[in-house]
Design a protein around this nucleic acid. Structure first.
Lengths: 156, 156
DNA sequence: ACGGAACAGTTGAACAGTCAACCAACGGGA
DNA sequence: TCCCGTTGGTTGACTGTTCAACTGTTCCGT
């Protein structure tokens, strides 16, 4: 491989592997915990949180899709499943007959209220209990830098 | 929600959302790039890298499963698909008739050699070009802290 | 007012990953 | 030696995501 590629330095490679391992393991763990003590997938939880933040616990599918960064199709399937479980309902969108709004039902909201403390505890246990204030600032800075770099690549 | 849960501080919540967004977007992007210019999924690539590191470009399924942290089942399916594409072959394991060793074929190795520079360029573009040396050290420290925290939770 | 492009959302097929059941082979006691 | 628990690996059914095709609606230029 005697080409012009700038390979990663040992420090970069180590950090990179650690990041991959940590995020993968972390998301697995959070998903397992959520599943075990609330019967929700991480994706379900994301939908619940976004809906619960919204006025009247309801939001248009397209906006929900943007906020969760789920594809339209993925969201449509996900909401259909949640509706079948009684956690979400669909309503026509006033003022735009193409639209659908998803609403978190009372049962859905109750499910979120039951799930949230455990989930936050998991996030604390695996992440923030292991970090001090400076680490949190570093994490924020690094994550933002990556997001910016990806956004910059999109523009180009 | 007037309970005893220690919710996340605004700083923690911000860092947490940024981490989730960044990792998700990053992995999506790397996967897309890899798919576009080498026809490989991120999972395929992981298998290729581990095999190429091994003596004779071959490794036992169980060891490969540990190193990639794929489940046995997932690996078995993945290797079957790669074998069908001619990138990997399966051989009986000498000395243990239960075993199978997976070998990266020449075509598989060539595929990896073709894919690697582009993949490393993506990792640079989205991650390390946006970080200085100090950031890399911070990233390493934070990722390791999370890994340790999860390992500690496993022991408990 | 009309016609086409863009938008909102759903659907079904294909695909990857998980889960549980399974078979074959190893290995350490009794 | 013979069992029996453990390990290595595969398989098939099921779940969730993606992809492409499709319906119905709105928006815009003419």
């Amino acid at each position: 491989m005697a080409d012009g590629t700038r390979w990663l330095t040992p420090e970069e490679l180590g950090a990179w592997r650690s990041l991959l391992d940590a995020t993968q393991l972390l998301l697995d763990r959070l998903g397992d915990d959520l599943e075990a003590d609330a019967g929700l997938s991480h994706a379900d939880y994301e939908v619940f949180v976004r809906l619960s933040d919204a006025e009247g616990h309801r939001m248009r599918m397209s906006e929900l899709s943007d906020r969760t960064s789920f594809s339209r199709s993925r969201l449509s399937h996900a909401v259909r499943r949640l509706e079948a479980r009684g956690f979400v309902s669909r309503e026509p969108c006033p003022g735009d007959r193409r639209g659908t709004v998803a609403r978190l039902t009372d049962a859905g909201y109750a499910q979120l209220v039951a799930a949230a403390p455990g989930h936050v505890a998991s996030v604390r246990r695996y992440v923030f209990d292991a970090l001090d204030q400076g680490d949190v600032a570093d994490l924020q800075r690094i994550a933002s830098a990556i997001l910016d770099a990806i956004a910059a690549a999109d523009d180009a």
